[in-house]
Design a protein around this nucleic acid. Structure first.
Lengths: 198, 198
DNA sequence: GTCTATACGTCGATAGAC
DNA sequence: GTCTATCGACGTATAGAC
């Protein structure tokens, strides 16, 4: 392991550097719009040299997408296994999304937008993971409707409205915005749980 | 004009056919993932032959993106110029998005996702149009907050939450879904204006 | 492990016959 | 207006020197 610690900054190895720069570029220009030569330039390496660290351009995409997918899955499971009310669970999910986006906006963006460029096999795997995430999420909503905590409506409409309300953050949030992550999270919870109407 | 009417089906000319098939393919595989040869196959024509109808692959993208952008802009202006309450105006905007997506989901998807592949000049034009749309939308939200109709919160958070809540429909809605456009619109209005909580 | 050179495919687009 | 043939650019990836 060549990882070493430098004051206030974790120095990452070449492979991690490639993945990190790739996420930034894919977010900006899309997977198809980013060439290995573009990426090499950012990494400070000829395109050919990167093949000593990764197997293919597609492997980069896979590593990014599945890293994010696994984070969402594992954290959702933790939320599911608590004894909170359904309302509290939904609030926790909103917090989870805000947190993951703020931690690594570029990778989340790639997972959300460029997964369709995965190989057929990996794409199917990815879709299955996503589906299972949506199913768990939908279950919480549905149970909350049955318990009377939530309004009764089409569960898919509620699910996808919440999911996409959480996705735009990745496109919009920058540390320079005049809003803290805490305020962002607060407003989102208010809006989704109680609506805009006064 | 070689357009002619066939019972229950409007026969469109070659250029419109190319644009329509392109929107479907771009939505499915992305602009970068779709080759002119792919498109030619769907249209029933060699790739080279399409250049008798369009100037370039990029022109196809421009025509799709600006057609949609102009529809949103002009219809938003109509809503702005009415004497409704701000709440009613927001409801009308929700209805506008549902309607445009149901009319032409593929083109809306392309305008939302592939605009970044526009030429530098056209991309700037597009971003400006989008910005002006967002500004008008934000004004309605802000005025409603001032009038006391809406809860006071960060206007951008409210704006982008609403906008992205309306975007997922394009990815999800199919006529085969067990929900009518009317029910979809109704649930969206309830959720965004009054929240999920009971 | 990084480089240069390059193989080899596919891309958008054009030329010119019909 | 459609075709076949093809150009030149650029894509990913590999080979082999250092």
């Amino acid at each position: 392991m060549e990882t070493e610690i430098i004051p206030n900054k974790i120095k990452i190895n070449k492979k991690e550097l490639i993945l990190s720069e790739a996420a930034t570029l894919f977010k900006e220009k899309g997977f198809g719009g980013t060439s290995m030569r573009d990426l090499g330039e950012k990494v400070g390496m000829e395109a050919a040299s990167m093949y000593n660290h990764i197997k293919s351009k597609n492997e980069i995409l896979e590593l990014i997408c599945f890293k994010i997918a696994n984070q969402y899955i594992s954290q959702l499971q933790e939320i599911e296994n608590t004894n909170q009310s359904f309302q509290e669970k939904l609030n926790a999910i909103i917090g989870l999304h805000v947190q993951l986006i703020i931690e690594d906006a570029a990778s989340v963006s790639v997972a959300n937008n460029d997964w369709k460029y995965l190989s057929e096999e990996k794409k199917n795997q990815y879709k299955q993971i996503r589906k299972s995430y949506e199913k768990s999420f939908a279950n919480i909503i549905e149970q909350g409707m049955k318990s009377g905590e939530f309004k009764k409506m089409n569960v898919s409409v509620a699910l996808f409205t919440m999911l996409s309300s959480l996705r735009w953050i990745e496109l919009w949030y920058k540390p320079s915005r005049e809003i803290t992550p805490q305020e962002l999270e607060e407003d989102l919870k208010t809006l989704l749980m109680n609506g805009l109407n006064n």
